[in-house]
Design a protein around this nucleic acid. Sequence first.
DNA 1: AACTCCAGCAACCGCGTTGTC
DNA 2: GGACAACGCGGTTGCTGGAGT
Length: 289
Amino acid sequence: MGRAPCCDKANVKRGPWSPEEDSKLKDYIEKQGTGGNWIALPHKAGLRRCGKSCRLRWLNYLRPNIRHGDFSEEEDKIICSLFASIGSRWSVIAAHLHGRTDNDIKNYWNTKLKKKLMATMAPPPPHQLLAAASSQSSSPSSSHYYMTNRLPPYNSSISSNQLMTPHQEMMMTMMDQQQQQLLYKEAMDSLVISANSNKLIMSHQEDSQEQSTNKGIMLLSDVRSGSSTTRTVARVKTEQHDHHHEERSMEDYGMDEINHLISSSCTSSSSNSLWFDENKTEDTFMLYY
DNA sequence: AACTCCAGCAACCGCGTTGTC
DNA sequence: GGACAACGCGGTTGCTGGAGT
């Protein structure tokens, strides 16, 4: 049995709003306010609409100081920067753009900005991804790329494949040096803090030579954007070792299993399972880009 | 002119969160 | 602290109009 409907759908009008309805809603709210109760508002305002629908219409279209139309380059950059750091939290992004609504920004991103960025930044071929990861490995005995989670100095020549999610990397092309440094830092931070995300790609690791843990859980990347490209994990095989990696997306895990994996990873004092511990700044973790 | 395709956008849906009793 | 109601948000749907054939 599903959730109870918020209103009697048989008795409410749906679809596009007429100018008369807009006028009624606007007049009522300007005179009476919302009264903190959207459910009761349509009846009081003489509208045969669902309260949710009224709220959406007001917030996205009727309320004062709403701006519609073309987004500026500056707004593009702000959206990209925030999307790279916090993902698709449109209401938060909207709060940074005066007069823009979350719905507007979401639509703009999905229909225009994303394509614009994709066109700017074609994804690297898989073999380049692997070669880059392999050549920068800190351990000659392994093509796994290890790095510390202390923030190294920003260097624009560093291949961002190893440091960022694809969507963060994509944003780089739009930004000036200062913004790139900020995004770079956010990318580094996200490798540690993203344990709370509900869209993480995880991997089992068994019998790693460099790490004594028998079985751990690795954060590969923060993929809160939900973009399909960020769900693709480059599997880096070592020539010397034949580590067994089982790559699974979050959706493949049951909640119990996820909780178990995370808790066992966090609490295992006898291993180097430290990927969720922000305090262990000297330790290393594995990165798959 | 008629039809199809598709981008853009407004609106809806349903889930998680917050507030109230 | 549990139950319920309402809000807020992000993902999705579906309508519309313009471009292409």
